[in-house]
Design a protein around this nucleic acid. Structure first.
Lengths: 192, 192
DNA sequence: TATGCTGATGTCAGAAACTGACATCAAGGA
DNA sequence: TCCTTGATGTCAGTTTCTGACATCAGCATA
């Protein structure tokens, strides 16, 4: 047996989420989180750059999956479809952790400083997706707009998926939202 | 003459921007800002909820202008055109303060926590624009997407306007970006 | 087996951001 | 003249976050 319990970071993440749900983000100190995880405050800050980051440590995995999906898409596929498929693939990353995602989303919604961090992560995701699109030949301006559209689709889909108690999986929600965007685009054609 | 110099908030804003440019955001303490403005730290926190907010106090004015432009647009105007015009109108708010806007943008670009705050403000702007669109009868989903598109246009236009040393005004940059979006949309039609 | 290194953690002191409670005091009105 | 008001100051305290250094099980290696 090691000198310490393994996976301190995981324990910290779990403790933080539990405490944020139990008593709220502001009412939870880093010392509380560390205490519940069985480490000191200093150790918390070795794993996470700040108090908010403990909720966002998994965001890289989602981004990697989406970028990979864009990179590996068939060359002849239209850019819009590439993005929609990639966002659906990103959905699979969360599929197994719906309850976790629900609690985490509720915590984020409860405090502005967590929303700020979420927006920064989504902006990073968008930038990474845009870069991946450029690398497969999509024009500069189009890449940025497509990536932002894709992230917007993902956000809308995620909200519905988290709210819906029932069956639909996240990838399906992404495709549904993409379909609605097509309909809206058809309904309000660009003028002039 | 009053007991204190007038416009403490304005002095704090100016002192903060100057110091952020001179020595950087992190190297500037709230006590520094307050000192240069001739007040105490406590007074700083009476005017601004936190250190970042001192750079964003003017954001409401921009949002109000854009929302008003949407609300007052001719009823028969197509939603996309309403949004483009509103963002151009928002540009007029900044037109007289290009140098100020440049310095402020540079400061924000220099530190992630300021970018977070900026993203939150833009999200609020988007939400307010979407609400204004709904109130003039634009459908739920379309309102959200149009508002986000409009904010994206404004961001792109702002970046170019701030970078360009020369003549173009911000409203013109917004319209130019909107024209490019039309072109991109035509180039990559939605499939299926 | 002894020795020495490594890495994860602890301890401690301190800076900086922020908050609540209360004090001060010019200005302006009753 | 007295009272109230509002902007500010003072002060003490909490929380977040950082740097420097100590500890010590486990592992490699002599």
């Amino acid at each position: 047996m090691g000198r310490w319990e393994p996976d301190a970071a995981g324990r910290l993440r779990q403790a933080a989420l539990d405490l944020f749900v139990e008593r709220g983000y502001e009412q939870t100190t880093v010392a509380d989180i560390a205490g519940r995880a069985g480490v000191t405050e200093r150790t918390f800050f070795r794993y996470f750059t700040d108090k908010r980051e403990v909720l966002f440590a998994g965001a890289n995995q989602l981004q990697d999956r989406i970028v990979a999906a864009i990179t590996e898409a068939p060359e002849e596929q239209a850019p819009y479809d590439v993005v929609v498929d990639a966002m659906a693939a990103g959905g699979d990353v969360l599929e197994e952790r719906r309850e976790f995602a629900r609690q985490r989303a509720a915590a984020i919604a409860s405090h502005a400083s967590l929303q700020e961090r979420e927006l920064l992560k989504l902006a990073a995701l968008s930038a990474a997706a845009a870069q991946a699109l450029r690398e497969r030949g999509v024009a500069e301006a189009a890449a940025g707009l497509l990536a932002e559209t894709g992230v917007a689709l993902f956000r809308v889909a995620f909200e519905r998926w988290v709210a819906a108690p029932g069956t639909p999986d996240l990838a399906a929600c992404v495709r549904e939202a993409a379909g609605e965007l097509r309909a809206v685009a058809a309904e309000y054609p660009v003028h002039r």
